[in-house]
């Protein structure tokens, strides 16, 4: 990032190449709209590029990067929620006029080779998606991005205690959602 900030030729290209899979994975997990992952990921890299002059290496680059991802995803989710609310109003109006509602976006439920694996992935995904927004984001940062409590606190603007509390509640809620559905596991 320092090379990007110094406008070293080819530095931004190398940064995109190095972080593309990670950014896209984080975005795909964070938003439930597959068609927007590419665009939002590109927007995140553009935000990084625009912010390059202001970047100060006070924290790890990953923390800075995930903060940009986090903000972009939160904004996107809020924007989509507003749009959904508007389109739902419109759909209800259409419905009142006798038109059928459009089918929902299939989202993340993509076919996996193994049926059991697929069912489990859908179940896990559903358990994560039913979490309150802050718990869900904290859990995603912890489990899938491998970030520590301090980094999550910096990204989400929370104290260490608040992060720990949020993470415990997120994990406990997922446990409560998943364990009854799994039944007797091999080690249960």
């Amino acid at each position: 990032m320092m090379a990007v900030a110094a406008d070293v030729p080819g530095a931004f290209e190398r940064l995109v190449e190095a972080y593309e899979p990670r950014v896209k994975a984080a975005v795909a997990r964070s938003i439930n709209d597959r068609s927007s992952v590419e665009d939002l990921s590109q927007e995140i890299f553009l935000r990084l590029y625009r912010a390059r002059q202001r970047y100060r290496p006070t924290a790890r680059f990953e923390t800075f990067l995930y903060r940009v991802i986090f903000n972009a995803c939160v904004n996107f989710t809020q924007y989509m929620a507003r749009r959904r609310a508007l389109s739902l109003d419109r759909a209800l109006d259409d419905d009142e006029r006798g038109n059928a509602l459009e089918p929902a976006d299939p989202g993340m439920a993509r076919p996996l080779e193994n049926i059991e694996e697929q069912e489990r992935a859908v179940m896990v995904r559903a358990a994560i998606d039913t979490l309150p927004e802050a718990q869900r984001r904290a859990l995603l940062l912890s489990r899938y991005e491998g970030l520590g409590y301090e980094a999550i606190g910096q990204i989400m603007g929370l104290s260490l205690q608040a992060v720990k509390s949020l993470l415990w509640r997120a994990r406990d809620n997922v446990r409560k959602a998943l364990i009854p559905k799994l039944g007797e596991g091999p080690d249960a």
Partner: peptide
Amino acid sequence: LGELPVPDE
């Protein structure tokens, strides 16, 4: 949670 596949995207 760790078994959730990496998204295709």
